[in-house]
Structure formats: C-alpha cells, structure tokens
Nucleic acid binder design. Structure first.
Lengths: 421, 421
DNA sequence: ACAGTTTCCCGTAAATGC
DNA sequence: TGCATTTACGGGAAACTG
C-alpha cells in the first residue's frame, strides 16, 4: 500500500551512517476518499527482528511522527518525507548490548512505517517496511556495507530477510560479473567489457574455474583476503572504483584505461608492438593504484622489454592529474636526454590523440612570478651486462647526465638500486 | 581561592568550539579541615554578563556538576576535571537570539565554578571564574579567536572584562612585535629576528611609522584588509604560521627561511651576490605561500636579474616537501640542459649544506615497478630584444629544447606568456 | 596484543541567515 | 547580492573493547 524509498548515503541507498542525516519518503498509493483529519505516519526502527537475533540496537534521534501531505509533483497522492538521524543504543535497561555473530556490515536492519485512519467508523491500519538496511558508523565501512546490499539484491527476491547473512548463498560468476560491470557503469559511467571481466573472474576463481556457472562464495567475494594480499577481492575492486570516481573519470569514460589486465596478458598484448606503445593497468598489489606499462626501445632484437611505473595513488593524483602525468612523464636514462617513453596507447593510438582533450595546464600565471609545475619522472639505467660485478660501475656518460639533472642524493639512490628486468 | 585552568582547543586555550569537547580543571588551593562529605562543584556558562550585553547564548551539554577529588600528582589538594561540550541556544523562550554588534570572535564569554560547604554550622560559598573565552563554531574561526585572546592578554590585566572588544585599546608596535615573535617561537619553535619584525612593522604601519612607540589599532591588526589584498594582517601572518607548522618546521627551526623580507630588501640583499644565490620568502600576495628568489646568470653585466618562482602552498607542499623542491627544482631555459638555479642559500651557504639533512627520498621501492618521483620545474626563455614584435618568434634552439622536453601543449603555453623581467 | 568497531574532530564545502 | 556564521560530513587517526 505504501512504497518506501530510501535515499540515504549519497549514491548508496540502504546504507545508513550513525550521526549522519538520511531521508525517507513514504507515499500512499491508494487514493483515499476526502478526509478532513490528518494522516500521521510513525517511523519505527527494527520493529521486528528474527526471533533470537542478537545485534546492535539503534534509535531515531529526530521526530519519528509526521503528517502526510498532498504531493505536488505527482498526481496528488499523499506522501511524507522524513529527515532522520540514527544513534546506537549502547545500553538497554542498563546492560550493555553485545554484538551478534555477524560483522556489522552483514547485520541487516529495517525501518517500518505505520499509519492508521478511521473511515466510516472502521479503523484501518496501514504498515510498510523498508528493504534491509546496513548501519555503519564510519565511511570506512561503506564498501563492506555496499557489498552486502549488492549480494542481497543479487541473490534473493525476498523483500525482508534480515537473517540473510547468517548463511549467505553463493553467486554464479555469470550473475556476479554482471553486477560488477553495473557498478562501474553506475558509479563511473562505463561498464566492464568481456576482457576486463575475464581478468576479474580469473582473479577471483583461478584460471580454470572462471566460467559463468562457477560459484563464488560470499566469503571469497568480500571477507577472505586474496592469497598473499591484505585485502579481499571486493575491497580491492572498490578501491579502484573510488580511484576512478575521484581521479580518472573522463579518461575511464573515454575508454583509455584497459585497467584489468593480468601481467601475462599484458605481455602478450605488448610484446609485438612498437616501442613506445603503452597501456594503463590498475595495481593488483596495492589498493587504489594505477600504473602504465610501455614497450621499451630494446637494443637486442630479442624479447620486448616492458617497463611499468610504480603505481600512482590518490595522494599523487591529487597533486597531478593522471592525464598530465602521461603527458609530462620523463625517463632519465643512460646519459641521454630525458624522454617521455609513452607514445602510443595500445594498440596504436598516438598519445595526444587519446589524451589530448584531458590535459590540464597546471600553469597559473601570477605576474611577478614564473610559473612552476610538477613533472613525474623516473630514472633508469641500462641492463648490466650478464655476469657483471654486483655493483656495476656507472658509465661516465650516465654520471654526467645525473650530475646535470639530479641532485647528489638522487644519484646514490639510482646507483644502489638497479631497476632493470 | 580556586584556580581555574582552561586547556581547550589543542594549543589554543581559551577558545572553545561548539560540539567539540574541552576540559576544565578546578583546584582548591586552601587545605580544608577533614570533611566527611563531598564537595560538589557546579559549572555555569556566562553566569554574569555586562548588563545590556547582547550576544549568542550557549549551554553546557554534559554534566555540569562533579565532586572534587584528592589530586594525586600534587600535594593532595582537592581538584576536579570536567569534560564539557558547548552548544548554542538558538532560541530562548521561543524567540530567536540575535547577534550582538561584535563579530563572534570578539564576543567574550566565561565559565564560572561554584561550590559550597558547611563547616561548624557556617555555610561557605566558593566561586571562581575563567579568563574570558571565545566560542567558535568552525576551525576557520580559530585565527580570529586567537587574535582576540592575544590582544586581550597583551592590553589588559583585568581577569574578566567581557566588554573589552566594545572599544579595544591600541597596542604599541613594541609590545605587539614581541607577541608576534612569541607566537612563532611557541608554535613553530623559533621566534622572529629583528629584520623579520622590521618588515612586519613596515607592512602594518608603513615605512615611516614603524617605531616601537607607534600605535596599532585592533582593526588594523585583524579586521581591516591590507590595502589591495583580500585579507587582514593577522590572517596573512597566521596563514604563514600554519604553513610552517605543517610543512616547514625543520627548515624554519634551522633558520633556513628568511621569510619576511620586502621585495626592496630582497633586491638589495641579492643584487651583488653570486648567480645562484637564493633566499626563501613568504608570499605577500597569497595566503600561506612560500617562494624562492634567486640571482640569475645574467648576460649583460648590468643589473642583477632576480627571479622568483610562483609560491608553493600547502596543496603542493603536501605532494612534495619543500626541501625536496629546493633539491630537485629545474629550470628549462633557452635550449640549454635543464638546470637547478638554486646554488647558495643567502648569503653564501652551499645548498646541500643548508638543506641536506632535510631531504627526503621520495623513492619507494616496490619490486616489479620502476620508482617515480615528482620534480618541480619552470620554463623560462630569454628576454626578447627591446622593440621586438609583440609576439617574438621562438628561436630554433629553444624550439628544439621544448619539443625534446615538453609536450606540444606545454609549448603553446610557454610561447604565449613570456615571463621575463 | 589485536582486530573490528566506534568516536573524535579537522578542514572543506554547502547551507543558512542577515 | 554578498558576507558572516553555522552546519554537514568525508576521511584519517585515535580510542575503545571485548
């Protein structure tokens, strides 16, 4: 009879943060005969929980009763909008509330709305209830909460199964990959293509097992860490989504970021390409990082030499937009003039054609001063000849170049750590 | 009888922010004969205001009554510590509270503490009161609030004159400069020397007027904008203090920053120095900026050519520490190899001797990747010959250098804005 | 000691009030 | 409309708590 909406956290409905306002709207879908009294709606948090369920308890800090109003925008039906604030009850009857067996982002809650009216002497009770809600206390819990909302919506049609995460069902990779792509198209404006999803499937399920029918457990998706990494699959993926949203939106939407590529695939794509061909890939070892890998001019005609830069994360990207990094990046190598090794976006798009419209000028012209900008650089030196001494002596040419271009301290760093394949 | 202390905002006592906890401590300085009952202290906000005074009203959200306890650390006297939270009363008896004629940071408030006890049948009332307090609602008001606290302490010995800013007295430059230097030594670890204070005095009072006896009005210090600038003297100075605290502490304490130098003085100091001599100066045109000015290699033996870089502000400095900027800064000029123009800190200290201990390596070594760092650069080209066309054609040498080192877009920027003296 | 969770609160942005 | 002031809340860090 009534239809509850739940716009709460910006862009992430169904997740409520304590101490932060959220709004709810209740609409009466039937048209009542003219009544001359007011229709009061009351909001109740967690009105009925599954019996025996232990979890945190909350209360609504703001007014929980309001009168319905004729809605202007629609066809004149009644509606009411609340602006609520939730707070945790730490003590109930003087005793401390214990947490349940689930993590807080798996704990599902609900908002109920009640109204009653009297028509022709008959009392009529109206009641409706929200979809399951996750309550968090810090934005750091938002990714976990959103994972719960996704998993719930993906795997059940029940409007209200608050015990869902006591025993969460598995998802097929076919279903899950669709949801993941949808996340990117919703929040970043462009979804994931077949190749990108394939890489994600292999990452989650291994090389053999990533078919559409493969089953992914909730734990594997969101709770267990990726082997050898200190974060789960979803935490990793969400960190990339956030990176795109804040720092890479236009170039992501322009399809300049291949992003999800395994290192093997990367090699097979790049190995026969022109030197200077590069692609953009998200870091698999660190949260929220992006790197580029390019084909280096190689002296011997054998294996193509691929080089990847240390991934850029939000802290660097907020000092310098990624398109500008690509434009300005320079490698100082081997006594030669510094050069930008990025020439063609894979497969063969000239860099400025791909990124030109995204370049920003950092230049700010304030008269008496000369403008300053930041440029990203790397230092590189030649592969030491096989069987050379463990500390290869620096060539005189390289030394000149370094003394010219870099400070003494930098030279030491460059000398003591040869980064060559 | 009781001595109130007021540690509130970190490092800035006497300033309270609504909605943020602060602590107060009350100690009983007389030793009472043994009493077997508890001594209760009650806190009251703004117990007595000057008659007719209109201002914002606040209330204490937390418990305002507590029992005194024997203090362990001292000689066993009684004390009590409160942890309070203040909130504004928007309505009093249903009517809105209007603001008074003063700005919020000039509005002085007080906390009173009361206790009573009964000895040998006689009721004794104890009461004490804090020094004047400023109540703010956002940290953006902290500088203004702190200016009030300074001015009050500088110019009156009255423990409680809440109407002080209705007609604030002037300060002599001699007094004020001492307080300003003390701000720097307290918050940044090193005070201001005679030359630095002299520059500040001229900035505030003009060239002729800055003697120790010159009078500075409260308005000139903190309320009126500096002519031609959108901020007052204190807002400017405080922005520099904050910049030092967050980004320049070690080099400030090492006396590497001259900082407060007028452009005329800068020129007279540098004009006869070696090319490559530089000094560090705070921006006078923008809040919280620092720049360096160096003596350029000049072709003709006439006037020394001084160049200043666009000031660095906190956003850039949080991407790249200032010492690293000095180490790595490069100027791309005239088709020559990029060069760091900063060689000697004024008067003649070799750069690495002055800054070496403050350099950080940006290098983070993550195996499969080559490290990347940011370097600050400027582009510069030669002074166009006098009476040249308004758009001087670019020399072939310069064009080569630019195509080599910079992207096409950068070239256009560099071409259309010649930054030469 | 430690991990999961909450609290704290700065600092930016937006909203509000005058 | 612009300015002064407050509110909102993300995000990092500290504090809490079994």
């Amino acid at each position: 009879e009534k239809q509850p909406c739940m716009p709460t956290h910006p862009q992430k409905p169904l997740i409520i943060k304590t101490g932060v306002q959220f709004t709810t709207k209740v609409r009466l879908l039937v048209k009542l005969p003219e009544v001359d009294y007011q229709l009061k709606v009351k909001t109740i948090f967690d009105k009925d929980l599954p019996p025996g369920r232990v979890n945190r308890q909350f209360f609504i800090l703001t007014t929980n009763t309001k009168v319905m109003d004729v809605e202007e925008s629609s066809n004149g039906c009644l509606s009411v909008e609340f602006r609520h604030l939730l707070k945790e009850k730490k003590y109930v009857n003087g005793t401390k509330v214990n947490e349940g067996p689930l993590s807080v982002t798996e704990e599902l809650h609900s908002l109920s709305f009640e109204a009653q009216f009297n028509i022709l002497g008959i009392n009529i009770d109206l009641e409706t209830c929200s979809f399951p809600l996750v309550v968090i206390s810090n934005v750091s819990q938002l990714p976990g909460g959103w994972a719960s909302v996704m998993w719930y919506n993906l795997l059940t049609d029940e409007p209200k199964n608050l015990g869902f995460f006591a025993n969460p069902p598995r998802a097929s990779w076919g279903q899950l990959s669709e949801v993941l792509s949808w996340q990117f198209s919703t929040f970043a404006g462009r979804g994931l293509n077949r190749e990108q999803l394939h890489m994600l499937g292999e990452k989650l399920l291994g090389h053999q097992a990533s078919h559409s029918e493969s089953q992914v457990s909730w734990s594997k998706f969101c709770k267990e860490n990726i082997p050898g990494k200190p974060f789960s699959f979803w935490m990793w993926l969400d960190s990339i989504l956030e990176l795109i949203k804040k720092h890479l939106l236009p170039i992501w939407n322009d399809n300049c970021i291949m992003g999800f590529v395994s290192k093997e695939t990367e090699r097979s794509l790049l190995k026969d390409r022109e030197p200077g061909t590069f692609l953009l890939r998200f870091s698999e070892s660190h949260l929220g990082g992006i790197t580029f890998t390019w084909v280096e001019q190689s002296e011997n005609a054998g294996e193509a030499k691929l080089i990847s830069v240390e991934p850029y994360t939000k802290s660097r990207l907020s000092a310098l937009p990624f398109a500008d990094i690509i434009r300005d990046y320079k490698v100082f190598a081997n006594g030669e003039a510094p050069e930008n090794p990025l020439k063609f976006l894979y497969p063969d798009i000239p860099k400025n054609e791909a990124f030109g419209r995204h370049y920003n000028s950092q230049q700010s012209k304030v008269f008496p001063y000369i403008p300053s900008m930041l440029i990203p650089i790397s230092t590189l030196h030649a592969t030491p000849p096989p069987c050379s001494s463990p500390e290869p002596p620096m060539s005189p040419g390289m030394f000149d170049m370094l003394t010219q271009h870099l400070s003494p301290l930098e030279i030491e760093t460059a000398m003591s750590s040869p980064y060559s394949e």
